[in-house]
Amino acid sequence: MSKTDSPAPSELKTIGFTPFIYCKNQALFHVSRGVPLADALAQASDLLCLAKELTIDAAYTRGTDLHAWAAHYLTAMSKAVIDDVAKVLDRRPVQTTKEAAASKNS
């Protein structure tokens, strides 16, 4: 694979740059690096499904504050995973100096 080739989607992995759950402006947790994107997105989907069910319970049942807080943390984790995946997908392929100059001249 040359420097300008993009890796196959199945080869893409999380980069682990995205934090979540803060304590006094310091991230307590972050997404782990090196997880295949498909697996990371599947996990985020599972977390969001659980959060959805918990919010439904919290909305219709009295005394379910714990459900709301659990849903809050599950959505924070899900968002971090999806944001980390988006960072991987938004990265541009590396160009050589010659290729960059050629694209400026065209």
Results as ranks from 00 to 15, higher is better:
residue 38 A to I: 11
residue 28 L to D: 04
residue 57 D to Y: 12
residue 75 T to Y: 09
residue 39 D to S: 07
residue 38 A to C: 08
residue 57 D to T: 14
residue 93 P to G: 05
residue 51 A to D: 09
residue 64 T to F: 10
residue 28 L to N: 05
residue 12 L to D: 00
residue 57 D to E: 15
residue 25 N to A: 08
residue 13 K to H: 08
residue 2 S to K: 14
residue 29 F to V: 00
residue 74 L to A: 11
residue 87 K to G: 15
residue 21 I to T: 07
residue 30 H to I: 06
residue 87 K to L: 15
residue 37 L to A: 01
residue 93 P to S: 04
residue 22 Y to R: 05
residue 64 T to Q: 09
residue 55 T to S: 08
residue 89 L to V: 13
residue 21 I to M: 04
residue 2 S to G: 14
residue 12 L to F: 02
residue 43 Q to I: 00
residue 82 I to H: 00
residue 89 L to A: 06
residue 37 L to S: 00
residue 10 S to K: 04
residue 82 I to S: 03
residue 89 L to G: 03
residue 57 D to M: 14
residue 56 I to V: 15
residue 65 D to W: 13
residue 64 T to E: 08
residue 43 Q to L: 02
residue 35 V to A: 02
residue 56 I to W: 06
residue 33 R to Q: 08
residue 51 A to E: 13
residue 29 F to W: 02
residue 88 V to A: 03
residue 6 S to K: 14
residue 25 N to Y: 03
residue 15 I to F: 01
residue 12 L to K: 04
residue 71 A to E: 10
residue 91 R to F: 08
residue 86 A to Q: 13
residue 49 C to M: 11
residue 39 D to F: 02
residue 14 T to F: 10
residue 49 C to L: 07
residue 10 S to E: 05
residue 53 E to D: 09
residue 86 A to N: 09
residue 29 F to G: 00
residue 86 A to S: 11
residue 59 A to Y: 14
residue 57 D to F: 11
residue 58 A to G: 11
residue 23 C to P: 00
residue 5 D to M: 10
residue 46 D to W: 00
residue 40 A to I: 02
residue 38 A to N: 06
residue 91 R to Y: 04
residue 2 S to W: 12
residue 25 N to R: 05
residue 36 P to R: 05
residue 78 S to N: 12
residue 67 H to M: 13
residue 49 C to Q: 07
residue 72 H to E: 14
residue 69 W to T: 10
residue 23 C to L: 09
residue 15 I to M: 01
residue 11 E to D: 09
residue 35 V to H: 01
residue 47 L to E: 04
residue 18 T to V: 13
residue 65 D to L: 15
residue 31 V to G: 01
residue 68 A to H: 02
residue 5 D to S: 11
residue 69 W to D: 09
residue 26 Q to V: 08
residue 46 D to Y: 00
residue 40 A to E: 02
residue 85 V to K: 01
residue 87 K to T: 15
residue 55 T to E: 12
residue 66 L to R: 08
residue 18 T to D: 05
residue 85 V to G: 01
residue 21 I to K: 02
residue 68 A to R: 07
residue 86 A to T: 12
residue 23 C to Y: 04
residue 64 T to S: 07
residue 73 Y to D: 14
residue 23 C to G: 00
residue 52 K to Y: 15
residue 16 G to M: 10
residue 77 M to T: 10
residue 57 D to C: 12
residue 74 L to K: 06
residue 10 S to V: 08
residue 67 H to D: 14
residue 78 S to F: 13
residue 46 D to T: 03
residue 66 L to W: 11
residue 33 R to S: 04
residue 92 R to W: 02
residue 54 L to Y: 08
residue 37 L to Q: 01
residue 32 S to V: 01
residue 85 V to R: 00
residue 31 V to E: 02
residue 87 K to V: 15
residue 84 D to L: 14
residue 86 A to W: 10
residue 85 V to I: 12
residue 9 P to I: 13
residue 65 D to M: 11
residue 49 C to E: 04
